[in-house]
Amino acid sequence: MALEVKHLRKTYGPIVAVDRLSFRVEEGSIHGLIGPNGSGKTTTFKSIVGLVIPDEGDVLLDGESLLTPQGYRLKSLIGFSPETPEAPRWLKVSEFLYLMFRADGMSRLDAEEMAEEASATFGLQEYMDTKLSRLSKGQRKRVLLAQALTPERRVYLLDEPMTGLDPEWVIKVRSILRKKAGEGSSILVSSHLLRELEAVVDSLTIIKYGVVVFSGTREELEAKLGPSKLKVFIEVDNPGLAKSVLGNLSYKLEEENNGLIVEAGSKDEVAFLVESLVKNGLKVYEVRVLEIGLEEAYMKLLRGKN
């Protein structure tokens, strides 16, 4: 089921939050909506689920508009997790999940079963009798994801889903998203950091001040901006010698602590650098990637559109 946002525009007084935004999330794919804070990502999500009434434009689910008076029915196919990790604090986790599924139109029995299933997927079983007010932000975020990422939905809208999650859950959520996409679901996911999503998205739309600055696949983004660079930190026993070795190979270098920061074009090139250092009698203690390629391309893109 494809989700299509067409010419969406929303203003708040003189402020244009989103300006004729258009993109498409194909069936079975993960689409990233990326932009700095205040770029209009949350307004876009809220417009799709009907929390914000757009001034212009449309949101289509397999060609059927979500914004018509009857469009609310289509929302039973959508799972939405909002940006802020806030939820009614007076409810226990089990009650919250149950009531959210009831609001989805499930029967009491189905809602209870689904609450159990969702809590298991998101590691919440031990918190089922705990009030939401007693959970950490990260745990509340998992509860919100649990009410959104249920199997019967075909489209998932996740606004900043990784914010507040610990690294273990970031990896698990990525894996859940990949699995859902593999099953044919369409997923729209946002972040203000490209590196959070780079590993998981098939395509992306980058917005700034509510305007699309790029929309397409990762490969198209790389093609548009030229080959991106990896910034790598290499710790060695003799930084001076290392600088000389890599300098002779025409690499751009910065010295830092007991090592060097080097710009490389690819992972193969990183291997070549390490090999060169070892061949010259240097001991390499650590190799760490500081910035992943697309992130830099993304920053370049944002800077260029000021």
């Binding site: 029915r73 929302k75 939405f80 909002p82 939820a87 609001a103 139109g105 919100l144 009410q147």
Partner: peptide, 9 residues
């Protein structure tokens, strides 16, 4: 926000 994102008018 959560309730109005559900299929509820």
């Amino acid at each position: 926000q959560l309730l109005l994102s559900k299929p509820i008018r």
